[in-house]
């Protein structure tokens, strides 16, 4: 299964935020730029953020590329458009020079911290199935995929691994958080990944697990090892480190409601 198959993928990521009352003094950070690593090569990349007073580029401490900026003027719509071509599936794992740094991903976070439901679930798993970080994580993924039901609307972005486990349902974010929590219960360094996938109209989330080969990616929602159909955008300890769009702004008194529409397309180039 480690046979190398490479795909050239053209992607288009579009997000529109609509506020029901005008906002201003809007500061934003966007983690929506795929970058090249051992697994994927970004051949072209363009982005547009509208409106903006300035935009600048930076990277965060997890190695993700970010756009940040500011829009002072009043606006009711905020648009982000990113497109490019990525060659994916170049290597089975992302190698690292510094394995010590991987250990910062070994500790539970607010989103992955286990409670009674996760501990109970974990205790019932076979202790000896799968030896080594990656085979063990694969075993945990298979079990989780079997025991959790995919259901949209049952959870929100704020749902923790523990809450989703208690419900036994969720979406890709919840599958990823639970797998992280289980791996971390066994001291396996692992991280949350946001990306895009062939044939999926939304952004997707999965998990990377660390061992001597580097970081291998597992997709617990689909019970698959990540292959040439996936484009990675960012990674971190959990969802919060990888939020595609983050913003603070001033608006009218009380809560300004916002609608977020995201469309993602990934197609194979032949």
């Amino acid at each position: 299964m480690d046979g190398i198959v490479v795909k050239r993928l053209r992607f288009h990521y579009h997000m529109s935020l609509t506020f029901d009352t005008p906002i201003q003094e809007h500061h934003f950070t966007l983690k929506c730029l795929p970058k090249s690593d051992d697994r994927q090569k970004v051949e072209s990349l363009e982005y547009d953020v509208y409106p903006n007073y300035f935009v600048s580029r930076t990277s965060d401490s997890f190695g993700n590329d970010c756009i940040y900026g500011y829009c002072k003027e009043q606006h009711r719509r905020f648009l982000i458009d990113v497109k490019g071509i990525v060659k994916a599936g170049l290597a089975p794992a992302v190698s690292v020079d510094d394995d010590c740094q991987a250990h910062i991903y070994q500790y539970q976070t607010r989103h992955t911290k286990p409670g009674a439901a996760l501990r109970e679930y974990h205790a019932a798993l076979l202790p000896s199935s799968g030896t080594g970080n990656r085979p063990r994580a694969e075993y945990l993924m298979h079990r989780l995929h079997r025991d959790l039901a995919y259901e949209q609307g049952a959870t929100t972005v704020a749902t923790t691994a523990e809450e989703a486990m208690a419900l036994r349902k969720g979406v890709c974010q919840d599958y990823a958080h639970i797998l992280l929590s289980l791996c971390r219960l066994e001291q396996i360094p692992c991280r949350y990944v946001v990306g895009m996938m062939l044939g999926e109209g939304m952004s997707h989330a999965w998990v990377e697990v660390f061992d001597h080969n580097g970081w291998t990616a597992l997709d617990p929602t689909n019970d698959l090892i990540v292959d040439d159909g996936y484009i990675k955008i960012s990674c971190g300890r959990d969802y919060r480190d990888c939020m595609l769009n983050q913003g603070v702004f001033t608006g009218s008194c009380g809560r300004t409601a916002q609608q977020q529409e995201i469309s993602v397309s990934v197609e194979e180039l032949t």
Partner: peptide, 9 residues
Amino acid sequence: GYLPQCESV
């Protein structure tokens, strides 16, 4: 007290 945001800065 450990803040991962400070890694490599």
